[in-house]
Design a protein around this nucleic acid. Structure first.
Lengths: 187, 187
DNA sequence: CATTCTTTTCAGAACGTATTGAATGTTCTA
DNA sequence: TAGAACATTCAATACGTTCTGAAAAGAATG
């Protein structure tokens, strides 16, 4: 099947490349590889064929397929007479990216923001502590910066998610938040 | 030191939160935790203190410090009389993000683009193959889309790296590239 | 309803990565 | 130069994740 077929080989190379990109983006490599194979195929492929071409066990194929289904990256289809399932991929990469941004990154940033706000609350509670109020004020201000950054991230992701173009002024905010506070002290 | 100190605890919470974000972004969690501790400290800290507060072994502390130094996320400083090293963090988060975008993501995307171009070349070489030319054309076109997307990514990263605001029209290109090709065929 | 085909599940194996802690290296002081 | 203080390295190990393969479950057919 694939002993010395240059085209099939090239497809596997592409699959591997995309697989690595996906892995870098926090997904499992097999997901990227499988999606790519479908993306390069004019018609749907069956689980058996996918497993054979990617050298994956039936179990791994099943798991990977289900994860891809969960993300809406592939769809199940059927052929008239045939018994087994076939799969075709979601072609719109932009749609996929947006979904991940919405369901994963946005959630993550929101959680982080809340946790940061929580820590800030603890600090501001003016708890009885041994630290000098000067030091405390410093820490509070740094935590505020982090929480604000999380807020900016949330806004950015929300904007992309809503399909809005990114407002450059928002990016300026990021720059500003990070560039302030030149950190000078010498006792 | 940290038995029931609410402020210290809050700091560790923040460190943990940022650590998880960093891990999600492809770095090691200890890196984020250590950077955060320095970010929340008015003056530089020594390796021993960092290890103690984060409950890391001396070895782990050393490795983490070196990685942070490599990314320019912290700097080595010294105190007049003292013998051991102290560390202070890079405060500009934007500067850090840009550096990573430049050294890591950009490289990654470039490599991917080249590999995709390579595969495309193989296909276009019109190798003797058993596949119908129609199928071949389909695959070629899909590979072109992927390569073009990589190109757009490269441009975006380059723009951010150069400090330019993101041109919304570029984002449009992403949308277009992914949204085209409604994938219809029924034999 | 039994048979056959296909998919899913899951315990265990394999793998890669992170962490430890003792040994080694380095740098300063006396 | 010897010794002390500190930093670094690295083999061993602990840990978590992914993959396998066989068994179970599910679905269509005769």
């Amino acid at each position: 099947m694939s002993e010395s077929d240059p085209v099939g080989q090239a497809e596997l190379n592409v699959a591997e490349t995309i697989g690595q990109l996906m892995q870098f983006w926090g997904f499992k490599r097999p997901m990227g590889r499988m999606w790519t194979l479908l993306y390069l195929s004019p018609d749907p492929l069956g689980a058996a064929e996918l497993g054979e071409r990617l050298r994956m066990s039936a179990g791994a194929v099943s798991m990977t397929i289900n994860e891809l289904l969960k993300w809406g990256a592939i769809r199940r289809t059927w052929r008239p007479g045939e018994r087994r399932d076939y799969f075709e991929c979601e072609v719109s990469i932009w749609k996929l990216v947006r979904r991940v941004l919405h369901e994963r990154e946005l959630t993550l940033v929101r959680e982080a923001k809340e946790r940061l706000a929580g820590a800030l609350g603890t600090i501001e509670a003016g708890a009885v502590t041994t630290e000098a109020s000067e030091v405390l004020a410093f820490k509070r201000s740094r935590m505020e910066t982090l929480r604000n950054l999380a807020g900016v991230g949330e806004m950015l992701l929300g904007a992309i998610d809503a399909g809005e173009a990114i407002d450059p002024s928002v990016l300026q905010a990021v720059v500003a938040a990070g560039a302030v506070e030149p950190n000078r002290e010498d006792p």
